[in-house]
């Protein structure tokens, strides 16, 4: 099954709408609560990243019996230094974004912790394409 959500740039008032809708979908599949929580956290962080740092993008979810793959594809401007971005606490957030309670530099580190597979394709000036993989084996 396939599901897509568009994410606008700079509109923090809708941060969490896509991940929340996706969560409601996951609940109908009777997945273990802990798995749902993990996926929701990762998708939420990625959604906030698109809003805060990109020119907008979309979240593409692919659901199958044993895995869920979530691709987050934005329209730029790319992450200049990915190694730094993966470091906990490292942030490029502006004063404005910090005031909104975002930008703690935990986005990508949290995503990494929450998913089973993660690949990030990015380059300065280009798209960022994140692919997150989740295994649906029983946890709880």
């Amino acid at each position: 099954m396939h599901q897509e959500y568009t994410v606008p740039a700079q509109d923090f008032s809708v941060a969490g709408v896509a991940s929340s809708n996706f969560k409601r979908l996951l609940k109908q599949l009777n997945l273990p609560p802990k798995v749902i929580k993990r996926i929701t956290v990762a998708v939420f962080e990625a959604e906030v990243n698109v809003i805060a740092h990109s020119y907008g993008g979309k979240i593409v979810c692919e659901l199958s019996e044993n895995t869920i793959t979530v691709e987050v594809i934005d329209t730029g401007p790319g992450i200049p230094n990915l190694d730094l971005a993966m470091k906990e606490g490292w942030s490029t957030a502006t004063e404005e974004i910090l005031e909104l309670g975002y930008g703690a530099g935990m986005g990508l580190p949290n995503i990494k912790k929450s998913c089973d597979r993660l690949s990030i394709k990015t380059q300065a000036g280009g798209h960022t394409h994140i692919t997150m993989g989740f295994d649906l084996k029983e946890e709880s």
Binding site: M1, Q3, L25, K27, Q28, L29, N30, L31, P33, L63, S64, E65, L136
Partner: peptide, 23 residues
């Protein structure tokens, strides 16, 4: 304990099939 009453089916592949059907 949580119940599974909101789910579409106890079996995941059938739930997935039903979810597609709902959409």
């Amino acid at each position: 304990k949580a119940t599974t009453a909101m789910g579409l089916d106890a079996d995941r592949s059938r739930a997935l099939y039903k979810l597609q059907k709902v959409t």
